[in-house]
Amino acid sequence: MNQDQPDQQYERFVSLFLSGERTLRAYTRSLLSSRQEVDDVMQNLGLVCWRKFDQFDQKGSLDDFIRWCCVISRFEVLRFRRSRARDRLILSEEVIDLIAVEAEDRLQRSEAEQKVLYNCLQKLDDADRRLLLSVHTRGDSVSRIAAESNKKPRWLYSKLNSLRDLVADCVLAHLAQGET
C-alpha cells in the first residue's frame, strides 16, 4: 500500500469500487452459474483489489479501474472454479477464459443493456413483473405463485420464458434505437 497517503488511497478505492461494483458484478456473473457463486467471488474480489490497489495506475479512469478489476475477477473466478472442479455445473476453464476476454470487450454494451432493462421492466404489469423476478427473489418462487394463482407451474415456467424473451427483445430494440 502507499503509506504516504493511505486515507486518499482508501477513499479513492472505495469511490471507484462503489462506482464500478455493479458492472464488475455483472462481468463476474457472466463467468459463473449462480448469484451465490458471484457473492462468494465478489467478497474476495474487493479484498484482493484493495490489496493490489497500489499496482493500479493512480491516474487511471473509472473505466481503467473496472478493466483492471475484471482481470483480477477473472483469476478469482478461475481459482473459484478449480475449487469446484468436481461440480458438474461448470464450464471448462478454456471457455471461461474466452468469455472473460469477450465480456471485457463488451463491458459498455453490458452496462447499456442493464440500464435499458430497467425501462423495459416498467412495461410489465405487477403480476408479470413478480413472475419474472420470482426465480431471483428470496422467499418467492414459481411454485408459490402457482399455488396462489391456481395456475399450473408448467404454464408459469413457459410464461416466464416468454417474459424473458419479451424483456430481452425490448432491450435489443431500445439499444438498436440508440437509447441507453
Partner: peptide, 28 residues
Amino acid sequence: DQILATDSEAREVFMRETNLIAALEDVA
C-alpha cells in the same frame, strides 16, 4: 461448453442472456 468454445456468436448470445439474468437478479 463445446458450442461456446467454438462459436463466437453463441458466446455473444450467452453473455447477453447472462447479463439479462444478472440485471434481473439485481432488481430482485
